[in-house]
Amino acid sequence: MTNQAFPYAEVFAAVEQQVIGTGSKQLGAPAVHEYLSEFKTFADRRFSDDEVFWKLVLVAFYSGFRAATVASKLEVIRRHFPDWQSVAQYGEADIQRILNDGEMIAHKGKVQGCVDNARTLGILVNQYGSFQAFLDSQLPDDSLENLLLLKELLQVKFAYLGGITVYHFMTDIGLNVLKPDRVICRHFHRLGLLESEDQIFKAILEGRRFARATGLPIRYIDIVFVVFGQVKSPNAGISEGICLREPRCAKCSIRSNCAHGDTSAKA
């Protein structure tokens, strides 16, 4: 099936309906809608410099670590990295103090990376007035070329923005990309949109096609597919996802579009 023939809007609507329907059984429909609707406004939001810094901190700590491990330490991490202005002034003694905290994730590379990122953020704020003004100056919405040049620039300037994590950060600050993580790439590969789950850039293009076809923000496309394929998503009322590594095809609303649509699979 070619991309031009693929029923992007219909497939997404079926996934969205199943996510909301499943989550509503536990949380109720209003709570699920409230949780998901937040992700429809990312492209319209103007993030403060401290909000941007916190997203950089999260990217650094989540990179290569189990999400549950980092999530259990968020309060401690926030205590050590309260705002970019304070962190930009940290010296070696401060870094050692953080690493000596028994409650903290003692990873010197991540701690140093957050300090370096605070300093880099400060340089951009001093030069442009705010990080948002720096983003706007790159005209990322004008063309895909501008967006990719910005992606490259962010990788050069900031620590822990690697080939995939840079897209995580860009998604979280409202740019027109999604997070091409293993869940998203698995979905798109099973739907025949990717030849391999390693096609990161193609996954992003396919996410943009879903957004165009539905008229929905790409961040919303991202979160709905993620909830559909995560092991569990308590905030959406999902105790067990559908399109898992071992897919629950008998429960799946889009199995007719999927190369793995074997109804004999785990229910």
Rank of each mutant, 00 (worst) to 15 (best):
L150H: 02
L150T: 01
L150S: 00
K151G: 00
K151Q: 06
L154S: 06
Q155T: 12
K157F: 12
F158W: 14
F158P: 09
F158C: 09
A159E: 11
Y160I: 09
L161Q: 13
L161I: 12
G162S: 13
I164D: 06
I164P: 05
I164F: 09
V166T: 15
V166F: 11
V166A: 15
Y167L: 12
H168Y: 11
H168R: 12
H168T: 14
F169H: 04
M170C: 06
T171P: 02
T171S: 09
G174P: 01
G174E: 00
L175F: 13
L175A: 14
V177K: 00
V177C: 01
V177F: 02
V177E: 00
L178D: 02
L178F: 08
D181F: 05
R182H: 13
V183N: 13
V183F: 11
C185D: 05
H187Y: 04
F188Q: 01
F188G: 01
H189C: 04
H189P: 00
H189I: 00
R190Y: 04
R190H: 07
L191F: 12
L191E: 09
L191M: 15
L194N: 01
L194Y: 02
S196Y: 00
S196V: 01
D198I: 04
Q199G: 01
F201P: 06
A203S: 14
I204Q: 03
E206V: 12
E206R: 07
E206F: 03
E206D: 08
G207K: 04
R208M: 10
R208Y: 08
R209H: 08
R209P: 05
F210V: 05
A211R: 02
A211N: 05
A211K: 03
R212E: 10
R212I: 06
G215L: 10
G215D: 11
P217E: 12
P217A: 14
P217R: 14
I218W: 00
I218F: 02
R219F: 03
Y220K: 14
I221S: 08
I221D: 04
V224S: 03
F225E: 03
F225W: 13
Q230A: 11
V231T: 12
V231W: 09
S233P: 03
P234Q: 10
G237T: 06
I238P: 01
S239H: 14
E240I: 09
